[in-house]
Design a protein around this nucleic acid. Structure first.
Lengths: 357, 357
DNA sequence: TTGAAAGCGCTAACAG
DNA sequence: CTGTTAGCGCTTTCAA
C-alpha cells in the first residue's frame, strides 16, 4: 500500500507538505506542488480513509437513514437516495445506507462511533423517537420531512428540515378542483399503516386538504388505501355509494394510481368528463399514467439534493438552519376538467379519525 | 468523547484488556470482563470507527455498487439493497451505497482508500469494465449477476457470482408453456437499453428461452419493451399482427406487467383462455397483479442475503468462491392454461439480433 | 514556503 | 489471565 510517507520520500519533501498539497490548507510553491502531484500520480497514492478520519475527525461520509416501512412507495425513496448519493459525491462525500428499524439506536451508533460526519433522516413521523437523539447529537442532521401535522405547529427547534410543502400541496389540489366547480371531493390516501404511524407528510397533506375544503365549503371524504386493485376497488366503490355526488378525486398514493384509472375505465366513468383526478406524485408517474394526470409533483431529486447541500454547508460551518419547504407546483394535464353541472353536493366526512371536516 | 483509555482507567485495567473484551480474541476472567462491561455501559463508550479501521485495517463496511441505469426496475434493486443492509447489519457490517456511473474508478477508490472491506457489484454486464479492477483488487467482491450470456461460457475465473439462474428460468417458462401445448410463444423483454448494454441477466434469460424453444420446436418471438402503456401496446399489437398464432407470452419486465394485462383485457383476449402469460418477476408482483400470474420468482431478498453471506465468509478467511446460481422456481397461478386446440404454429423469429433463427 | 513532531484511538504482537 | 508497547497513516500545531 502506498502511504503519504512514500509520496513524501519519492518527491523529496516532508509528509506535512504532501498533506497540505492534498488539503490545500496552506500555500505551496508551484514547483513542489507539481513534483508532489507527479509522485502521487506515479505511485497511485490514495489517502487512507481510516487514518484521515482518525487524525481529522472527519470521515467524508454522510449517513442516510431510510427505514423502508410498509406502505411507502419505494421508487420515490430510491430517487431521493439517488439524488443524495449523487449530490454527496459531487461534494466529496460517500453515503452510508441505514435501512433498518433500529431508530434511535442507529443515531447513537453513528454519533458515538464517528462513522459519519452527519446524517439525513427520512420517513419522519410525528413525535419521531429519533428526534431527541438528533437534537442532542454533536453532528449535524437534516430531516427529510417534518415531525408535525402542520408547518405552523412545527416544533422544529434545533432541527433542520427539508421537504415539499405537503400542506400547501393538499390545499392546491382542492383549490384546483373547487376552481373547476367540483363540490364533492374524495381523497385516496396513503395506505392505512402510513397514517397509523403518524408519518409527517401524509398528516400534513391531510391538514392542507381539509383546510382548503373548509375554505371552499366543499365536501371532503378521506380514505386511506393500500396500493392494490382490491383495496382501491373497495374504497372507490364505497365512496361513490356513500356520496354519489363525488366528482373530484385526489390521489396521494403512487401505487393506487393505475388501479384507480383501470377501475374508473371499468366502471365507465370517463376521466375527466365524469370524474376529475388530481394526483400528488412524481412527474414521471403523472406523465406516464394511462391518462396523463393533473398533479402536484413530488420533487424527489430536488429534496435529496437540498438535504445534502444543507448538510454540506452545515459541515462547512455555515448555519442554514430551520425548515425549508418547497412550494408545490400543480401542472394541469388531461385528468381534470369542469364539474358536470347539477351534481349534488355533500357534507364533509372522514374515516380516519382526527375529527373530520 | 469517551475513549478506550477512559474505560480502561475507569475499570482499573489496561487498554489492551478492554480491547480484548470487545473483540473476544483472548480469554478474560469473568470478573474483569464484567467490571469492564460495567465501565463501558456507565461511560457510554463506543469504539471509534476510524481508529479501529486504521489499527486493524478492517472498516466494518461493505460497499454496494448499484448503478441505477435506465430500464432497471427500481423496487427489485431496492429489495436486494434492503436484504444486503439487513444481512450486513446482522453480521456487524454497515453498507456504503455507490450508485454512480463511475464504474472502475469507484472500484479503485474503494480499494485504494480502504473505505470498505469488500464490495458487492450489481448490474453486471457482459465484459463489464469493472471486472479487471475487481480481479486485481486485494479486497474480496461478489457480483450479483454473471458477466456472460450463458453460465457455461462463464469466464468467471477469480470472481464470485451469485444470482438467479436466469438461463434456467427462461427455459422453465418455455417448458411450462410448451407443456400446455402452446406452439407460438412471444417474449416481452426488458427495455431495449438493457439489452444494448449487454446486461447479463437479460442475455442469459434469452439464451435459456431460445434453447428451450429450440428443444421443443416451438416458435419464439422476442421483443424488448419499455415499461409504458404505449410501448407495450405497440409491441403486443405487432406481435399478434405478425404472428397471429401466438398463444403464450413470457414477460420479463415488471413495469410492463400491468400495461400488458390491461391491454389484453382491452383487446378482449382472455387470460388464460386466449393467451397464457408467464412472468419472470418477484412473487409479490405476480401475486398482486390484476390476474395472479404464473411466474418464475425473482428471489431478490435471497440474492442479497447470499451475496453478503459469501462476502462475510470470504472476509473470515473461508474461500467459498465460484458461481452460485439459485434454481428457478415456477409457480403456476391463474394466468396460464392449455393452448386452445387448432391454433396455427409459426416459425421462430427474433428482433434483437444475435441471430435467432 | 517548508519541516519536525506530537498525537488521533485502537489493535496486536510480545512479555510476563 | 493481564499489562506494555509499538505502531496504523494522516493532520496539524509549532518552528524555522
Amino acid at each position: 500500500m502506498v502511504t503519504l510517507a512514500d509520496v513524501a520520500r519519492h518527491a523529496g519533501v516532508s509528509a506535512s507538505t504532501v498533506s497540505y498539497v492534498l488539503s490545500g490548507k496552506r500555500s505551496i510553491s508551484a514547483a513542489t506542488r507539481e513534483r508532489i502531484q507527479h509522485s502521487i500520480d506515479t505511485l497511485g497514492y490514495r489517502p487512507h480513509a481510516g487514518a484521515r478520519a482518525l487524525a481529522s475527525s472527519r470521515t467524508g461520509i454522510l449517513a442516510l437513514m431510510m427505514p423502508l416501512r410498509t406502505g411507502l412507495y419505494v421508487p420515490v425513496l430510491m430517487e431521493i437516495a439517488m439524488a443524495v448519493t449523487t449530490t454527496a459525491r459531487s461534494h466529496g462525500y460517500d453515503v452510508l445506507l441505514l435501512t433498518g428499524e433500529e431508530g434511535p439506536e442507529a443515531v447513537r451508533r453513528v454519533e458515538g462511533s464517528a462513522i459519519a460526519d452527519a446524517m439525513i433522516v427520512m420517513d419522519v413521523g410525528i413525535d419521531d423517537p429519533r428526534l431527541p437523539c438528533l437534537r442532542e447529537a454533536a453532528r449535524p442532521s437534516v430531516l427529510i420531512g417534518l415531525p408535525t401535522e402542520s408547518a405552523e405547529a412545527a416544533d422544529t427547534a434545533g432541527l433542520d428540515c427539508v421537504d415539499l410543502d405537503f400542506e400547501a400541496a393538499g390545499a392546491r389540489c382542492v383549490d384546483h378542483l373547487a376552481g373547476l366547480g367540483h363540490t364533492g371531493i374524495a381523497v385516496l390516501g396513503e395506505p392505512p399503516a402510513v397514517y397509523e404511524r403518524g408519518t409527517g407528510f401524509a398528516a400534513r397533506t391531510l391538514t392542507g386538504l381539509r383546510a382548503a375544503a373548509g375554505a371552499h365549503g366543499v365536501g371532503l371524504l378521506h380514505r386511506p388505501v393500500d396500493g392494490t386493485y382490491a383495496a382501491v376497488t373497495a374504497a372507490v366503490t364505497r365512496i361513490f355509494e356513500e356520496r354519489p355526488g363525488t366528482t373530484g378525486l385526489v390521489v396521494q398514493n403512487e401505487a393506487a394510481v393505475e388501479p384507480l384509472l383501470a377501475l374508473l375505465r371499468h366502471q365507465r366513468r370517463a376521466v375527466p368528463e365524469d370524474v376529475s383526478v388530481v394526483a400528488i406524485c412524481p412527474d414521471q408517474i403523472a406523465l406516464h399514467a394511462s391518462v396523463p394526470l393533473t398533479a402536484v409533483s413530488v420533487p424527489a431529486r430536488e429534496i435529496g439534493r437540498l438535504a445534502v447541500e444543507r448538510l454540506v454547508r452545515r459541515l462547512a460551518g455555515e448555519e442554514p438552519r430551520g425548515t425549508e419547504l418547497i412550494a408545490p407546483r400543480l401542472t394541469a394535464r388531461a385528468s381534470t376538467g369542469p364539474a358536470a353541472p347539477g351534481v349534488p353536493s355533500a357534507r364533509t366526512e372522514d374515516r380516519h379519525g382526527h375529527g373530520g371536516h
